[in-house]
Amino acid sequence: MGKYHSKQGFKTIITPSKEKQKIHYDRVASIIDDHKAAPQMALISRLNPVITGWSNYSTVVSKVAYSDLDNLMYLKLRAWSKHRHPKKYWGWVSNKYWQTIGDNNWVFATKQEGKNPMRLRSHAETPIVRYVKVRSEASPYDGNLIYWSSRMGRHPNATRRVATLLKLQKGKCTHCGMHFREEDVLEIDHITPKSLGGKDEYKNLQILHRHCHDEKTTGDGSAVKYT
């Protein structure tokens, strides 16, 4: 765990400990060593759940750690592949075990004609999740509908539709771009008015300030409000 300095002060950055990274890599390396004579497909099948499980469990700010692990794993797999074909040059070996998939030219994957290749997952493809700390004094029952709906998409005093839209909009009015305040009067608007064929579905709904809704309604020619 570390910190970096910003204009707003210090921010805590959580990363997997070096000890946990080493334990995980040692397990990956052991699996590769145990599969020296096994087909590539068997090795990938054994490694993928280990990589996926550890990466999902460690989804904190870990891009550097994930990249380091992938580099170490590549070196281990390179040694594994060269051990299997000691008399072949590296170009032949790499072409046999690494494939181009999408924009990535170095995917450890099987080569199967007419079939989707079985590919090894990388640690770095796991999405990074940054968690926002709940304010220490906050409670879903403190009446702060805007805060909790924007954060969690639900609130005991808000309809599901209102809470969901507040979360999708991250607590901002899509007309003026300003954050909603507790004292603001909010209204649900159909982006494309129902009178013009708009549907009553989330992708066609937004929450606006009442005055923003009035401006929008005047502009789109719709005289009907939906709340």
Rank of each mutant, 00 (worst) to 15 (best):
D103A: 08
V50P: 10
Q99Y: 06
G114H: 00
T52W: 10
P49V: 06
W80A: 01
R84Q: 13
G102Y: 02
S62A: 14
L72W: 09
P117I: 01
W80D: 05
L69T: 10
K63Y: 08
P86T: 02
N105R: 13
S81A: 15
L72F: 03
N105W: 15
F108M: 03
Y66V: 08
Y66W: 06
H83F: 15
W92V: 07
N56G: 08
H85Q: 13
N116A: 15
I101W: 02
G102R: 09
W98Y: 15
L47C: 09
W98V: 04
T59D: 13
T100D: 01
L47W: 04
L77P: 03
D68A: 14
V61M: 07
A65P: 00
F108G: 04
W92Q: 07
H83L: 11
K96T: 10
Y89T: 02
V107A: 05
K63W: 04
T110A: 12
N56S: 13
D103P: 08
T52M: 13
K87C: 01
A79W: 02
T100C: 07
Q112T: 13
N104M: 01
A65H: 02
K111C: 09
D103E: 13
N104Y: 09
R46S: 15
K96Q: 13
N56D: 12
H85D: 09
V60L: 09
K63Q: 14
P86L: 05
P49Q: 04
W90D: 09
S81K: 00
K115Y: 03
E113I: 14
D68Q: 09
K63M: 14
K87H: 07
L69G: 14
L75I: 12
N71E: 13
P86H: 02
L72N: 09
V50K: 00
Y66L: 08
G102C: 02
R119L: 15
L72Y: 05
S55L: 03
R78S: 05
K96E: 12
V64N: 09
L72G: 02
H123Y: 10
F108R: 04
S94N: 12
K115W: 00
N56H: 12
D68S: 11
W80G: 05
K76S: 06
N95E: 11
Q112C: 13
F108P: 06
A79R: 10
I51R: 04
V60I: 14
W98E: 07
R46P: 15
S55T: 11
H85K: 08
N116Q: 13
V64K: 08
H83C: 06
Y66K: 04
Y97L: 01
V60F: 08
S58I: 10
T110V: 09
V50C: 08
E113L: 14
Y89D: 07
K87G: 05
A79L: 00
V60R: 06
S62L: 04
R46K: 15
W106K: 11
Q112I: 15
Y74L: 07
S62R: 02
W80R: 03
K88W: 12
R78G: 08
K88E: 10
E113H: 12
M73S: 08
Y97F: 14
N56P: 10
N71Q: 12
H85C: 08
W90A: 03
W106H: 12
W54Q: 11
Y66M: 14
Y89G: 02
N95Q: 14
N95G: 15
